[in-house]
Amino acid sequence: MGNDTGLTLRTILRDVLSLSEERAAALDAETGLFGAMPELDSMAVAGLLTEIEDRFDIIIEDDEVDGEMLETFGALLTFVDGKRGA
């Protein structure tokens, strides 16, 4: 799953945060997200999570959203993979 999920997740981040193609392509497991990317503020998180739910056909419960899940691209990818496998 991870590879396709990663590509889709990069596209979502690019679209929601208006990142350049280069910045989206450069995202790796260690890339910091919330708190590290100025584009990803609390308002953008809501849009990001909604878009993830729509594109991956998953439901993200409020109690699942925390700083750890949004800390890095890798953490978010792991979370989405987990939700898709559940």
Rank of each mutant, 00 (worst) to 15 (best):
F34A: 05
L7F: 09
G67F: 13
S20A: 13
A26L: 09
G74D: 10
E68K: 13
D63C: 06
L13E: 00
I12F: 06
G35V: 10
R10V: 02
L9S: 00
A24I: 06
T31V: 05
G35K: 14
L33K: 04
T11D: 11
A36S: 14
D28F: 04
T50H: 08
M37I: 10
E71W: 06
G47T: 01
S18R: 15
D41A: 06
L9F: 05
D66C: 14
I58H: 07
F34R: 02
E30R: 13
R10Q: 08
D62W: 08
A46V: 15
L33G: 03
E30Q: 14
D15M: 00
E71L: 12
S20R: 15
V45G: 02
G32Q: 07
M43N: 03
E53H: 12
A44F: 05
S42C: 09
I59Y: 09
S18Y: 14
G74S: 13
M43V: 15
E68I: 11
D54M: 01
T31P: 03
A44L: 11
D63I: 07
E71G: 12
D66Q: 06
I60N: 02
R10E: 08
V16W: 07
G6V: 01
T8P: 07
T50E: 06
L9E: 04
L40Q: 01
L70Y: 07
E53C: 10
E21V: 08
A44I: 04
L9N: 07
A25F: 02
